[in-house]
Design a protein around this nucleic acid. Sequence first.
DNA 1: ACAATAGTGTCTGTCAGACAATATTTC
DNA 2: GAAATATTGTCTGACAGACACTATTGT
Lengths: 231, 231
Amino acid sequence: MLRGVYAPSDFPPFAVTVDLVVLTVRADALCALLVRRGEAPFLGRWALPGGFVQVAESVDAAAGRELVEETGVAGLHLEQLATYGEPRRDPRMRVVSVAYLALAPDLPVPVAGTDAAAAAWVPVSEVSSLAFDHSRILADGVERARAKLEYSSLGTAFCGGEFTVAELRRVYEIVWGVGLDPRNFHRKVTGVEGFLVPTGGTTSRDGGRPAALYRRGEVGVLSPPLVRSSA
Amino acid sequence: MLRGVYAPSDFPPFAVTVDLVVLTVRADALCALLVRRGEAPFLGRWALPGGFVQVAESVDAAAGRELVEETGVAGLHLEQLATYGEPRRDPRMRVVSVAYLALAPDLPVPVAGTDAAAAAWVPVSEVSSLAFDHSRILADGVERARAKLEYSSLGTAFCGGEFTVAELRRVYEIVWGVGLDPRNFHRKVTGVEGFLVPTGGTTSRDGGRPAALYRRGEVGVLSPPLVRSSA
DNA sequence: ACAATAGTGTCTGTCAGACAATATTTC
DNA sequence: GAAATATTGTCTGACAGACACTATTGT
């Protein structure tokens, strides 16, 4: 720590944690991954998954490590959300938390973490008060996801490797809470060059013409953007 | 610090700093506020202004405090940019830095900070390699500013309290590095309800019809956005 | 055939970009 | 008046929203 070179008051010690807002679309609702705390403070309360950043790893790496630990899946979309550093946000000590937003397709079942008593997918509309300032962080994450759907290909991160236009449209409808015209949505997303890549396959479901399957294209920015509007 | 309650390995100590990307438009260029480092490491190199977060203040408050110290002005636009936490980004010890983006009108002259040998407004196009990972942070800040001009009223933060449509247009042209049609720009910004509020006053400059003066309106989101396009 | 979903074509209002025209100042 | 800048008006092409219509499956 090189004590002696700098006065200790120059760099008061902080703990640095990462907190994850992991969102998915399941059961016709936008859901967040929550864990029930197994230790004080806020024992028994729901909280965002997360943990301490280790000495030798980057903050981004810590977030990726926690995400794999909690979901059991690698390769999910992960981006930094914001950093929360109010002095009293953790009653134990001075903790600065770097929050991340992750998007996942409908995963089988949450994995109970080491320090979490239980984990569950909870519809964001039913989330009540979380531990620490996690309600605020969750709200910021949801708003970020809603906003980024408009001008990025983020919506495909909620789908699996192959998906239909209708499945992608359901994602938008559920995340935004609006209805979208199937015809216009189809024309829009298939019209943007490089956004969706047809795989050639088709689905065969109950009743109705089979739909073409697509996978995420290389284009990450939608210009012009999709617009959030009711229908 | 409550040692004994948790194993020390649970929360390895970090130093937390704030770094500021302070941008302004002056002399027909987008400029950033830089300081020349007065101590090791990177002695004599240009760097972003910033400093350690104190124990009792929030991270946001630390950024606001540093901004006032460096510019001598209060009330500037200030928003969190991102957090940088690579293990070796500071050779002294493990430092996590929360970067902020601030926008200022053309200020008189930079104030030399306590630990900075000099401060200056440097056109971002002429900035070479900065200390630490500050080149990356500056690039991220500039890109954030450019992107947010499209869909927010952020451009007005570069202007003083009262400004003309032409002055605002110059801001967009310089930040984006493109030419904009004065007629279409005028129609666009005055057409968005609540974006600009006419003060009633007019300018009297050399040659040309006086322009109406405006101040920033309440509307912070531009919908539909202005689009970055050449002219 | 009918229901259901997928996908295409057409119409229309809105808006951005191009640019002509007018207004108000200084020299 | 000429030059310069501000502001308004007009035209046109592109595109979003509404919605009729065609296509392809299961029952």
